[in-house]
């Protein structure tokens, strides 16, 4: 089993609903975020291109944050989901510095927090909160090992990219372009 997400940049309107829903679902404190939206504009008026991307932890297959964690608080569970065990975490910040995507943050309570792929919902067979709310249905989530999953299908049929593949992290969030 390999959970992954695909973000259709052709449909994302950058509304940030995913961010709001994530905050509500996961009790993310105000002023902090597990996910965010990026706007990339290239060219000059009127020859322009724009990409909108909803970003979060990439649940990397080769996760430096897990490798560098001195206590094992950062770990990988079933389906490749990268998680932080709060009361194993000493808050050393090593994982934060090790993540090329800056996907982690230091929770005001001391431990490090990040996107969990809404593991608590996924376990119950539900979609992550951001996926479930997205009004443009541009987020796809599922098991890459299952060819019938939504995410496998779009990955198969569409062009995609990952973020900073050269960092060698083998990210599992795919941006459909």
């Amino acid at each position: 089993m390999r959970y992954a997400m695909a973000v259709d940049t052709k449909k994302c309107v950058g509304c940030s609903d995913c961010v709001v829903a994530c905050q509500a679902e996961n009790n993310v404190p105000h002023g902090y975020a597990r996910e965010w939206v990026v706007e990339l504009v290239e060219g000059s008026y009127p020859n322009l291109e724009m990409e909108l991307r909803s970003e979060r932890c990439n649940h990397c297959d080769n996760a430096p944050c897990v490798r560098c964690c001195p206590t094992g608080a950062s770990h990988i569970v079933e389906g490749g989901i990268v998680l932080v065990e709060h009361n194993k975490c000493i808050g050393c910040g090593a994982c934060i510095t090790s993540c090329p995507y800056d996907a982690r943050y230091s929770h005001p309570e001391g431990y490090v927090d990040k996107c969990t792929f809404c593991e608590h919902l996924v376990k119950e067979g539900e979609d992550p909160a951001c996926v479930a709310v997205c009004p443009t249905k541009c987020l796809y989530f599922g098991d890459l090992d299952d060819p019938r999953s939504e995410v496998s299908k779009v990955i198969k049929n569409r062009k995609y990219k990952t973020l900073i593949p050269e960092a060698g992290t083998d990210p599992q969030i795919f941006f459909l372009t």
Binding site: G14, S16, V19, G31, Y32, A33, E35, W36, V37, V38, E39, L40, V41, E42, G43, S44, G93, I96, T97, D102, R104, Y105, S106
Partner: peptide
């Protein structure tokens, strides 16, 4: 011109706009 910006969501203290999680201690 190339403009890439986080339009929402992330202004995590000590991470954004630039990482500064390690201060004088490390």
């Amino acid at each position: 011109m190339r403009e890439e910006l986080i339009i929402s969501g992330r202004m995590n203290p000590n991470i954004d706009p630039v990482l500064h999680i390690w201060h004088w201690q490390i």
